Amino acid sequence: MNVLRVAVSAALLLSNAFAAAVPSIKYCQNPRAVNTDYVGRDKNVLVQYTACDGVATTQIARAIEARQSNNVCGAPYNTSCFTPSGGGPDPNDCHVITDALLYDSQNIGALFTLDPAQNTSLITMTYQSCESFMVNQDNVALTYCRTDWASILDNLAFNCQATQNAHGGLSVATDQEWFIQVQHS
């Protein structure tokens, strides 16, 4: 239920991709956009990296793990669509983000890291009506695959539309370490 609350907060606060507003994450104090860039073959997909102050570690083991990267490529997740229908992104706009992720996977590298210590707890990608973001909900640096994000993005964009009584959706890791959301920008 906490993940859903974070997702709803994120959806409300990320309504404008160019604004500095970012989701409220339970361990993220003073969230702020620290870097923006354009990616993909045509450099037409906006990427925003968000930093958080006061990332708390609750255990000594977590402090040690935070210096390491936990590869969660291929990790299991659960998907749900946001209901009711109306106001979802154009899935074709979302597919442009998918193409940018796949392009970068082949030309930059398959892996990327969401690391609170490196100001990348949250990464947002936006193209026209589509916005997708991935949130690291753990204090540990997570390594993830661009191809996995692309697959989840296409799945959510094309299967969480008005025809399914939806307007975007969410995929949450079964251990709740991370989630990926797709919504109207």
Results as ranks from 00 to 15, higher is better:
7 A>I: 12
9 S>E: 15
9 S>D: 15
12 L>G: 09
15 S>W: 07
15 S>T: 15
16 N>S: 13
17 A>T: 05
24 S>M: 06
25 I>V: 15
26 K>M: 10
27 Y>S: 08
31 P>F: 05
31 P>W: 06
31 P>S: 04
32 R>Q: 05
33 A>I: 10
33 A>T: 14
35 N>P: 00
37 D>P: 00
39 V>T: 10
40 G>P: 09
42 D>N: 13
43 K>S: 12
49 Y>F: 09
50 T>M: 02
51 A>I: 03
52 C>D: 01
53 D>C: 03
54 G>E: 13
54 G>T: 09
58 T>P: 01
58 T>A: 08
60 I>D: 04
60 I>L: 10
61 A>V: 14
70 N>A: 13
73 C>R: 03
80 S>A: 09
84 P>W: 02
84 P>Y: 01
86 G>R: 02
88 G>I: 04
88 G>F: 03
89 P>C: 06
89 P>Y: 06
93 D>P: 11
96 V>L: 10
100 A>V: 05
100 A>D: 14
101 L>W: 07
102 L>W: 01
103 Y>K: 13
105 S>V: 05
105 S>W: 08
106 Q>H: 12
108 I>H: 11
112 F>L: 06
114 L>D: 12
115 D>F: 13
118 Q>K: 15
120 T>V: 01
131 E>R: 15
132 S>K: 03
132 S>T: 13
133 F>R: 00
133 F>Q: 00
136 N>I: 03
137 Q>A: 10
140 V>Q: 03
141 A>G: 07
143 T>P: 00
145 C>E: 10
146 R>N: 13
147 T>A: 12
153 L>R: 00
153 L>Y: 02
154 D>T: 12
155 N>R: 14
155 N>K: 14
158 F>Q: 08
161 Q>K: 02
162 A>L: 03
163 T>M: 05
164 Q>T: 05
164 Q>D: 09
164 Q>E: 10
165 N>M: 03
165 N>K: 01
166 A>C: 06
166 A>V: 03
168 G>L: 01
169 G>Y: 00
170 L>F: 14
171 S>P: 01
174 T>H: 11
176 Q>R: 10
181 Q>G: 08
181 Q>W: 00
183 Q>R: 12
184 H>Q: 11
